[in-house]
């Protein structure tokens, strides 16, 4: 087989692993969400299915599969079907460039953890993909032919425009320091405790807030604001189509967490020497576990914030996006630039 064939086989095998990982992570974070929300509200949460209710996500997905799929008569059938596919597809596609650990070396060949972690536009790719995911929500809102869905979709696109900007600008600070868009390269530069969050605290806060808006999580979950918009963009969705939106939301949360960890918290870099040779399987697994631990922390943080902060009003959201975060992001770039000019 020619070399390109082997590359495709390798990528395919990795893709299967990653898709399984993401979907199960999404399902497990649904469980985590229900459990964390419960203990915050002095309840217990799902604890009946399996030990500690751990099989609850399986029961949930199983239920969604067997539910009737109701489609409104006046809905645009094609787009109505396409929207959840876009949402979930994009949410998974982002993982193509995310490095889960460094590499393992077998017989002189380096196998990287991730499909294309060394691609030199990784950061840009993630930004582009997460922006595209808003199409899924907007299309869902529009094709449902329901006023509440449409409002949800419109809000989503308005929100995206206001937050994508400050998100991108806050990342520029990191780019100025690292000088690369490759995610593995960014991670490598944060060896030891040289995490970017210590260098770019303002940028990190802006990025974190924008990530909440990007993933449609409370306090920025206006597109699906239940009290005012019924269910927002997913009002007219049922069965597994709704399930796909649901999984996409949690996959997006995992993506945002992974992105934050990679860019600001040193990714898979272990801050102390544990005495394992570079390229060994053991080291790669420890790196993977370390990365995963940080991602899980941020997923739990997302959930924790959701059950603490009430939803922003629409005008407050716009104010925050345009009048606060955007100027701050620009300020961050200026400060970083001056810093580099003086000390770099």
């Amino acid at each position: 087989m020619p070399e390109i064939g082997w590359i495709l086989v390798e990528a395919g095998v990795k893709a299967v692993f990653i898709v399984i990982l993401i979907l199960s992570a999404a399902a497990v974070s649904v469980y985590a969400e229900r459990r964390v929300s419960a203990i915050i509200q002095l309840r217990l949460g799902p604890n009946r299915v399996g030990p500690f209710g751990l099989l609850q996500p399986i029961a949930d997905v199983f239920k969604l599969f067997w539910k009737e799929d109701v489609v409104p008569k006046a809905a645009d059938m094609g787009f109505h079907r396409l929207a959840p596919v876009i949402s979930l597809g994009i949410a998974i596609a982002v993982y193509a460039v995310i490095p889960f650990a460094h590499y393992i070396e077998i017989g002189g060949t380096k196998y990287y953890f991730g499909i294309a972690p060394n691609v030199n536009i990784g950061l840009l790719y993630i930004l582009a993909m997460t922006s595209v995911s808003v199409y899924g929500i907007t299309l869902a809102g529009w094709s449902s032919n329901n006023k509440y869905s449409l409002f949800g979709g419109l809000r989503s696109s308005a929100q995206m425009i206001s937050y994508e900007l400050s998100m991108g600008l806050s990342l520029i600070g990191v780019l100025m320091i690292t000088g690369t868009l490759s995610l593995n390269e960014i991670v490598l530069q944060q060896s030891g405790w040289g995490w970017n969050v210590f260098v770019q605290p303002l940028g990190f806060i802006i990025f974190l807030v924008s990530s909440f808006a990007e993933t449609n999580r409370t306090p920025f979950d206006l597109p699906e604001a239940e009290p005012e918009l019924v269910g927002g963009f997913n009002t007219e969705y049922s069965g597994m189509k709704f399930g796909m939106f649901f999984l996409a939301e949690y996959a997006n949360m995992a993506t945002a967490s992974a992105f934050i960890v990679l860019v600001y918290f040193g990714g898979w870099q272990i801050p102390f020497d544990i005495g394992l040779g570079a390229g060994s399987i053991a080291l790669a697994l420890v790196q993977f576990a370390w990365f995963l631990a940080k991602v899980i922390f941020f997923i739990l943080f997302f959930i924790w914030v959701r059950w603490t902060v009430p939803r922003f009003r629409y005008d407050q959201l716009m104010n925050l996006g345009w009048k606060v975060l955007l100027p701050l992001a620009i300020l961050n770039i200026v400060i970083t630039g001056v810093w580099i000019m003086i000390f770099g």
Binding site: V36, I39, I40, Q41, L42, R43, L44, I205, W304, V305, W307, T308, V309, L320
Partner: peptide
């Protein structure tokens, strides 16, 4: 906003460790 949100997070964190009311 952020200091207030941090306060709120502290409150919910406190509640996580309180005894639960659920009767099974």
């Amino acid at each position: 906003y952020l200091p207030e949100i941090a306060k709120g997070l502290g409150l919910t964190m406190k509640y996580m460790f309180k005894p639960k009311f659920t009767r099974q």
